[in-house]
Amino acid sequence: MSVALSIVDAVEEKARLEGAGRISEIELVVGRMAGIQPESLKFCFPAAARGTLAEDAVLLIEEREALGSCADCGSTFPVSFYLVECPRCRSLGVRVVSGDEFLIQSITIEEE
């Protein structure tokens, strides 16, 4: 819930700066390893946005796959968990190198 409130705060601030009447759409990017459940976020958002410029905004969530990099053979591959084995050399020395992003990509505002 506090995550949903952070989003509403951030988009409302931006929308006010741009002189918006309301926000019609919010695009988010959520990495697979960001620790965020898009479904829960969608559930919480209307409550967090009530009474704000984002009250009727559509929440578009783009999920991005996470990538791991093997410390032993250097190959890069998609991962969904911290505990992974390199598919090429079976090493467990895999570092997650992307997929923890959690961004507000853009907002669409209506001037009205």
């Binding site: 019609s24 961004l103 853009s106 907002i107 505002i109 209506e110």
Partner: peptide, 16 residues
Amino acid sequence: RAGRKIGMEQDVLREN
């Protein structure tokens, strides 16, 4: 009426 799209590319947890 098309709304105006504004790029933000802002981390949700930025304030924290």
